[in-house]
């Protein structure tokens, strides 16, 4: 899941300072699950914004709406009539949703209401951790299902480095050393000897380093190309 965190209220108030009527737009996908930009967060932020502006004596009309997914154009189509009447949109979707929203409404200012943090997992109520970096060429087969790219502070492929102690990473004592996890898991599975082999240098061209990525599956494409 994509993990996001709401931006500080002052930053958002700054974005909206010149507007009188905004649409606070939530998303029913990842940001709902990670409690950053779902219907409830839209409601809370809506109240916060309205009250803050009321207090300043410059009322802000807040329209609140949460759609199924902001990363799909078809759901954005459904709110065109609402968007028409507002000065700007404050999107609480992840970076993808915010951009899709901006693309769907080219004549409308779209402000980001969250910081998109990482691809991760919910470990506990209020606790999320990174798990994947979308490097484009998965190596989990070699690393016992634990990703060194996303979870090792140095993304090394032949760890653990000399800073691993008591299973923790030198960069942050609260972070598990990914390579200690990999080592221990493979040991449990009786596969630790596989780590004696050197993992070759990675082809980063499948990652962001190859430029913005695009996936085309011709088998799925329709005649119209849309």
């Amino acid at each position: 899941m994509i993990i996001a965190e709401r931006k500080p209220i002052d930053e958002i108030l700054g974005f909206l300072s010149k507007h009188q009527k905004v649409l606070v737009l939530g998303c029913g996908g990842c940001v709902t699950v990670c409690l950053a930009g779902g219907e409830k967060e839209v409601g809370i932020l809506g109240s916060e914004l309205a009250m803050a502006r009321s207090k300043e004596g410059r009322p802000l009309e807040v329209v609140q709406k949460t759609i199924e997914r902001q990363c799909d154009f078809e759901y954005l189509e459904g709110i065109r009539h609402i968007v028409k009447d507002v000065d700007a949109i404050l999107s609480l979707a992840c970076g993808i949703g915010i951009q899709t929203c901006a693309e769907a409404f080219p004549d409308k200012i779209v402000w980001p209401g969250v910081n998109t943090k990482f691809l991760g997992v919910n470990l506990n109520v209020g606790v999320w951790a990174e798990r994947c970096q979308a490097c484009g060429q998965c190596v989990l087969d070699k690393t016992g299902g634990i990703c060194p790219v996303a979870r090792c502070s140095k993304s090394i492929f032949n760890g653990p480095c000399g800073g691993s102690q008591n299973g923790k990473c030198e960069v942050d004592p609260d972070t598990d050393c990914a390579w200690a996890l990999i080592h221990d898991r493979l040991a449990r599975l009786g596969e630790v000897d596989s780590l004696r082999e050197i993992m070759a240098i990675k082809d980063w061209s499948f990652s962001r380093d190859g430029g913005p990525r695009k996936l085309v599956r011709e088998d799925l494409e329709l005649e119209s190309g849309k």
């Binding site: 140095k154 090394i156 492929f157 032949n158 760890g159 480095c161 993992m199 240098i201 980063w204």
Partner: peptide, 14 residues
């Protein structure tokens, strides 16, 4: 921003 394109063992190999 850090690089870590290769790790130390891969650098030795290179």
């Amino acid at each position: 921003k850090n690089v870590f394109d290769v790790d130390s063992i891969q650098l030795i190999q290179i």
